[in-house]
Nucleic acid binder design. Structure first.
Lengths: 228, 228
DNA sequence: ATACTATGATAGTAATACTTTTATATTTGT
DNA sequence: ACAAATATAAAAGTATTACTATCATAGTAT
């Protein structure tokens, strides 16, 4: 798996960047260090000026890669969802039993990102934390509809759609498969956030994981059909 | 109900404001017009300078009521959750059957806010839209833990806790009552957002409501015990 | 040797998120 | 009715942000 992913490039909408950050050393440093900095200081405090100082480059050079920090966040999020999608498709690929397949998918999508193995300059653990803490900000804007039209959220939508398909395959009678799919993905991020900051609002802790909760919820909601 | 609510004041943590906006005409205009403006232009574009222009007052005068726009958002959100809590407690008060009680609570908490009836200067319909589009931004910050300690989220937490208690009363064997309660509240906001901007990611539309979805989900998950 | 490209350095602009000071209007207490 | 206290308004100032523009320079490709 690790070896395989080394040779994979996650295809991100090229409107999200001015110049592909994967195409140069500076670009990779921008990605690498922006992940560290956004995690450290939060998205609002993060600026291209500070990033420039940190990577000993220039603010104006960073603008040659990304129009603004909002697009950088969309880029990072797309990368993350693409990476998760890849892991999920890979892990569920051979499974023919609909129930097992969905089980595996939920496991991959809701489990903690444990360690950083595959891409040298991208720290997936921190990127997962960024997605938990900042992803909502990327779509809760007045520009969502235009940006959605421009395809900035395709990977995320495709991922939810894959989950939707597995739900329908398992139980075609369930009336809310899209909502359940989006609830699992978004709700999982939320439960991680609550575990960290509002432990009274969640049952998740060191022992119980968001995976446990959503696995249970999904299988309480769905009734497998016999042709599965 | 309307008459009753006219005489109710929603108790909001007094650290959220410098001067109580309910205590003066200017304060009420700040609340009234900030709701309209945040709805119109979104929270990031909204500024105290623009609000001052709009209400023909001065930027500096607004700062005498709220330290910054972030605290204003927290104030508006607290007001909203307090208002919802009130409606929920009122509506579920007389119900002794645990199942019916939870049913009523979910209905109140997840249904569309249809019209603005009770408080003259607060438009609850728009406030509901603001909560859908902006609430996450109020807690997805580096300062959450401190602000949580300062009690800025008490009403929201109390509301979820009330829902939690109804879930436990209905089915004490269910292992994730807190997570289910927080999922219903947060997930409902999310489904409304998706319905508006990402219809492919939800089953909710003109006919199917987030209420339908979460009512069904909750009652698939929970098994009433006989002593209910 | 030259031309092209990437990056860096510097400066500039408009807007934001405030703070400070001073003036004026309004309310209230006696 | 008058003085004092309080609320609001007006204006100016500051540091930072989110860029844009210009010019210089180093490396690379032909």
């Amino acid at each position: 798996m690790e070896r395989l992913m080394h040779s994979i490039k996650i295809g991100i909408n090229n409107k999200l960047y001015v110049k592909d950050p994967e195409s140069s050393d500076l670009g990779k440093r921008i990605i690498e260090q922006s992940i560290l900095m956004i995690d450290e200081m939060g998205f609002e405090s993060f600026t291209f000026r500070k990033l420039g100082d940190r990577i000993k480059s220039n603010e104006s050079s960073i603008y040659r890669y990304f129009e603004n920090k909002h697009k950088l966040l969309l880029y990072l999020a797309s990368w993350y969802w693409g990476w998760l999608e890849y892991k999920m498709v890979f892990a569920t690929n051979g499974i023919s039993n609909a129930s097992e397949k969905l089980r595996k998918a939920i496991e991959i999508l809701t489990q903690t990102v444990e360690e950083d193995v595959s891409f040298s300059h991208i720290n997936e653990v921190l990127l997962n934390k960024i997605v938990i803490n900042e992803y909502s900000k990327s779509y809760l804007t007045k520009e969502v509809d235009q940006e959605n039209k421009d395809g900035y959220f395709v990977i995320y939508k495709r991922l939810i759609n894959r989950l939707y398909e597995m739900i329908v395959a398992l139980d075609p009678t369930y009336p809310y498969p899209s909502s359940l799919a989006s609830t699992i993905l978004e709700g999982s991020l939320h439960q991680y956030f609550l575990r960290e900051h509002f432990p009274m609002l969640t049952d998740c802790n060191e022992k119980i994981t968001p995976t446990d909760y959503f696995m249970d919820l999904a299988f309480r909601a769905l009734k497998p059909t016999n042709h599965a």
